[in-house]
Design a protein around this nucleic acid. Structure first.
Length: 569
RNA sequence: CGGGCUGUGGCGCAGUUUGGUUAGCGCACUGGUCUGGGGGACCAGGGGUCGGAGGUUCAAAUCCUCUCAGCCCGACCA
């Protein structure tokens, strides 16, 4: 490929609205261009990387017995109604109607369609099956952001396993786990498997593959000592037990003028440390007003609340709703004496007494609250978000919190979808059995962005060989020099014969421009042909990652470069 | 969904408060001369009607109304 005829629109400045490094660089280097919020065009360079990532995924999926499909992106609503997710998916699903008024949806995922196909399975002899595709998904994200990291239309590899027995599902899950480890390793991503929430899909085991990056949107608890890794939406820790002094204090109202927060109350009353307070959060779960109680110094994790209740829509109550339900404004809320409202309490409040909480009257609080005696707790559950520095649940060492990009997610669905979608096979005894399913995803575009996040420097992108748009860049400094061009062509032919993707920068531009573009675009190796060195019989060879240029003798430069490339591959 | 900010050539921006000639700058682009190993210089050019619609006015990028779009933060600390 000749740069002079390639479409690689590099930019000196990043668009003003780009924030994430990958976003800036992918746009500047001419890999992607935004069409609309959450919708990006892949330009030729971007598509090359995208395809290479997809190919790695494909190869590893095939290696564990996956069969590739290509399913429609647009689905009839009926299919989603059958699984029950037409309603569950809410506003995240793009919906439309055809001319006849039939409801349709753009697929956010393909459990339904694959399950529908799986109704053609009739015998246990046909199991297990492992099906996958790489197809566009559509999600009406509330807030697309960070270039390719969070978009509304994206290619995703999704696979589904069908097994008769739970042990088969375990094997499919493990196979995916190992395949994902290989996939991310091959594309240069340091992805760690992490315990995760299963979300609204239900299911048991759930593991996310997380790539550390400041551009990520997930926080992961990491224990360097024992290897514990969990998303904060799921992870727990050992909490130091609080021994409340049993000084016989009984429930008592006391005035707290102007107190509106945990900190205010702690400042007013020396006994009312945050640890001694009950934080009362008013939430609305699928329209039902619910109180979530936490220790004053703890924070609610919405996903945990959602997971423990199975609620679809979770939001904080408005001040009006709160006033109407409890009779007080936020700042003086409490659950003491509340009977008609569902009360969820975090496990850290179990057995606590002599605590402080709001009295449900503005400017009044209660002291001497015994959680179990004074509050009608409907359910005890884990609601709080673990913070950095807490003790690892497994080994007690200090946990750190690492910001990550979710690059992959595997989980066991169980029989829920198979059942609702009507999949069943006859077992060896001739009895109908519902197969158990697993669901496994990798976002291709997000992987591209994650690689860019992890492989760049001040000058630009630094692609790993495995996903580089081109492996070798031949920069010709003196395009009008016959000898230079002839050598470039010879090298190009030789490299291509060796299986490399080669780009020749034959633009009539100043060297500075070419070098700057070369570094921005991030092709792993560069051969620089300049008349000056040519006279000395030499050519330069520069790996993008180190920038260390070595001089090669003209007559052996091709072999020497290839040797170098192979040793890095 | 709440809050904030922003829409002016391909990209980055100024001009808007205090309406007033042909709407300006840098980069990019075209032609030319020179230059030729890290985004070079000079000369000459092309391209926008100021997100959209409506309104006020002799006159609107600038004021008013509506609308569309984009970005950031928040949507846990009651």
């Amino acid at each position: 490929m000749r740069w002079s005829s390639a479409f690689i629109p590099t930019l000196r400045d990043a668009p003003a609205d780009a924030e994430a490094v990958s976003h800036k660089l992918l746009v500047r280097a001419g890999f992607i261009r935004q069409l609309h919020a959450g919708h990006y065009s892949l330009l030729p360079m971007g598509l090359r990387v995208h395809e290479k990532v997809a190919q790695i995924v494909r190869e590893e999926m095939n290696s564990i017995g996956g069969q590739e499909f290509l399913l429609p992106a647009m689905h009839p609503a009926s299919l989603w109604k059958q699984s029950g997710r037409w309603d569950v998916m809410g506003d995240d699903m793009f919906r439309l109607q055809d001319r006849g008024g039939t409801d349709l949806a753009l697929g956010m995922t393909h459990e339904e369609v694959f399950s529908h196909l799986a109704t053609s399975l009739h015998s246990y002899k046909e199991l297990p099956q492992l099906w996958y595709q790489i197809q566009m998904k559509f999600r009406d994200e509330q807030r697309p952001k960070s270039g390719l990291l969070r978009v509304r239309e994206f290619a995703m590899k999704d696979s589904y396993s069908f097994d008769l027995e739970d042990s088969g599902l375990d094997r499919a899950f493990e196979a995916h786990h190992d395949a994902y480890v290989r996939i991310f390793e091959r594309m240069g991503l340091n992805a760690m498997p992490v315990q995760a929430s299963s979300g609204a899909m239900g299911g048991t085991a759930s593991v996310e593959f997380m790539v550390p990056s400041p551009a990520g949107e997930d926080d992961v608890l990491v224990c360097d000592s024992c290897g514990y890794r969990a998303n904060v939406e799921r992870g727990t820790s050992q909490l130091e037990e609080v021994l409340d002094e049993d000084d016989g204090t009984t429930l008592e109202r006391f005035p707290t003028p102007g107190v509106r927060s945990i900190a205010d109350l702690a400042g007013l009353e020396s006994q009312a440390l945050a640890v001694q307070q009950i934080k009362t959060m008013v939430m609305v779960l699928d329209g039902e007003l619910t109180l979530a109680l936490l220790r004053g110094d703890h924070q609610l994790n919405l996903q945990k609340l959602q997971d423990s209740t199975g609620a679809i829509e979770v939001r904080p109550a408005t001040t009006e709703e709160t006033l109407e339900a409890l009779g007080a404004a936020p700042g003086s809320l409490g659950a003491v004496g509340v009977e008609k409202i569902r009360v969820l309490a975090d496990l850290a409040l179990q057995g606590r007494f002599n605590m402080f909480t709001g009295a449900n009257e503005d400017d009044w609080h209660l002291r001497g609250v015994s959680v179990e005696a004074d509050i009608s707790v409907s359910e005890w559950t884990d609601l709080r978000e673990v913070e950095e520095g807490e003790a690892c649940i497994d080994c007690g060492a200090l946990l750190s919190v690492v910001r990550c990009i979710e690059a992959g997610h595997i989980f066991k669905l169980g029989r829920k979808y198979a059942e609702s979608m009507g999949i069943s096979v006859l077992d060896a005894d001739g009895k109908a059995q519902i197969p158990t399913m697993g669901s496994y995803g990798i976002g291709i575009g997000r992987a591209v962005a994650a690689i860019a996040e992890n492989h760049h420097d001040e000058a630009g992108l630094v692609w790993p060989m495995s996903v580089a748009p081109f492996h070798m860049l031949i920069t010709v400094l003196d395009v009008d020099d016959r000898t230079s061009m002839r050598i470039a062509e010879k090298a190009e032919t030789a490299f291509r014969a060796a299986g490399l993707d080669v780009l020749v920068d034959d633009r009539d531009a100043r060297p500075g421009v070419k070098f700057a573009d070369a570094e921005l675009v991030g092709i792993p190796f560069r051969l620089t042909i300049g008349a000056r060195n040519l006279e000395k019989g030499q050519i330069e060879f520069t790996p993008r990652s180190t920038g260390d240029t070595q001089m090669l003798d003209l007559d052996e430069c091709i072999e020497a470069a290839l040797k170098n490339v192979r040793s890095t591959k």
